[in-house]
Design a protein around this nucleic acid. Structure first.
Lengths: 255, 255
DNA sequence: CAGTGGTCTAGACCACAAC
DNA sequence: TTGTGGTCTAGACCACTGA
């Protein structure tokens, strides 16, 4: 027996075969019973093999018709602008997602701030914040594309109760915050990724093993107080974020 | 019995308890035997529960001392500039990662282009390309931070054999490509994320369930030919990519 | 060296989707 | 209807690691 457990070895062989192109997207992989015989292992072990590959997003199993190599969908190019625009409804940060709308009403709750958010808001973890949750998507097809959560520190909401109401008026929370003397806000975005939560898998209809891409935007007032954090989750399989690179004078073309 | 399998139900309860803060980072979760008794399930089922939570990057098991809620490391802010710089060694696209160096020699191979790369190079999948693989990291600690692969179409390498050699001279492949009449190159970057491959888990020392962030840069010559694709994999847990947002005139401050 | 996680089995049963 | 994936068990054994 090698250093790796049996099921990892078998997963490795199948993975390599997929990368070599022996199994093309859409092809069926050997079914459970065949692998049991071929490698002389039990059904549970074979299941473990396929669970590993499924968690990697490589294969997809359907009852009766077998386990297939996944076809990866084309990625939607999400040209994330580094510029904030504003229209009659409010602010937007994304030219290519301009037609997405909230599917259903905003959900507003008070809850302890998750660790990452507390750190960015510069409050101690577990402190209560106001959370405005939105499910965004294509209003025509009803397809969900992103989950948005807006985190507001409790002291700011006490000062500005409108932030806890469903309709925050023209220009949305940013205009209200700026009117209350916190303007002009400056924005900063951070891009990261992590494994999907159960909620994200369900709402974004993620295939097993697909991570989410995160866009976390902080809004800071001129005194340096972080007034809001806006966290977006997107399917990492469906989206990519693109931008052109400019040449610095040090990188002059040599033609 | 509900709609979900038993192990998913139990995983859900533990997950919720972690989010509620009943188990803090560093705390021990109940051990296998306790959960067997509490829920009246077998050891394999309990293992499956913890395998789910581990794949989500929520918990980490160590023999003898139990299964703990993971502490997530601080993210290294990777301020990805939108500007290409150049020094005596070559081009760089990342101010904050300037001191990273190749750990070990470049590995150069000819292999069929993976689907994603073929699409960007505008060649049919499986066409042979030249791949230059590098492992980058901190030269002092030896810690690996990113895997870099540079994909070059075979016809360009036939025209410019130096692209297949280890030392490509001052300014690297970009200067060689531009000197050969393909300059000035224009660059475009795409950010995405996906589940880690086995190689990435090993080389980047990723914890189970941690995805990789991908930065894929295309270099295009003035005639529109894509001359190179540079694909970087980073631990999504360790890095985030940040940038400030500017105000468009439409988003004037309302103070 | 004992305790905990990790792997594996043989066999049972369920549930869904294609036929 | 039936074949396929999916779940679960009871019990065995291994392997690492912290006291």
């Amino acid at each position: 027996m090698g250093a790796l457990p049996r099921y990892q070895e078998i997963a490795g062989e199948l993975r390599a075969a997929i990368y070599r192109g022996e199994y093309q997207p859409g092809d069926n992989l050997p079914q459970r019973v065949d692998l049991m015989n071929r490698y002389g292992v039990s059904k549970e072990t074979v299941s473990k093999v396929y669970r590993v590959l499924e968690a990697e997003g490589l294969v997809q199993a359907t009852r009766k018709s077998g386990t297939r190599v996944r076809r990866h969908p084309e990625r939607l190019q999400l040209t994330r602008e580094r510029t904030a625009y504003r229209d009659e409804i409010g602010y937007f940060f994304d030219l290519s997602a301009q037609h997405w709308r909230a599917l259903g009403p905003v959900e507003i709750n008070r809850a302890p701030a998750p660790g990452e958010i507390a750190r960015l808001l510069d409050i101690s973890p577990g402190t209560e914040v106001v959370i405005r949750d939105r499910v965004m998507g294509d209003p025509d097809t009803g397809r969900v594309f992103q989950l948005t959560a807006s985190y507001l520190p409790a002291d700011l909401v006490d000062e500005l109760p409108v932030l806890e109401s469903v309709d925050t008026g023209p220009g949305g929370i940013y205009d209200r915050i700026e009117e209350a003397g916190h303007g002009p806000l400056t924005w900063y975005e951070r891009l990261s990724a992590r494994a999907a939560t159960a909620r994200e898998v369900k709402l974004l209809a993620l295939a097993p093993g697909v991570p989410v891409q995160r866009i976390v935007r902080t809004s800071t007032d001129p005194r340096g107080k972080v007034c809001e954090i806006n966290a977006i989750s997107l399917s990492a399989e469906l989206h990519e974020i693109g931008y052109p690179i400019e040449r610095h004078p040090s990188a002059r073309p040599s033609t």
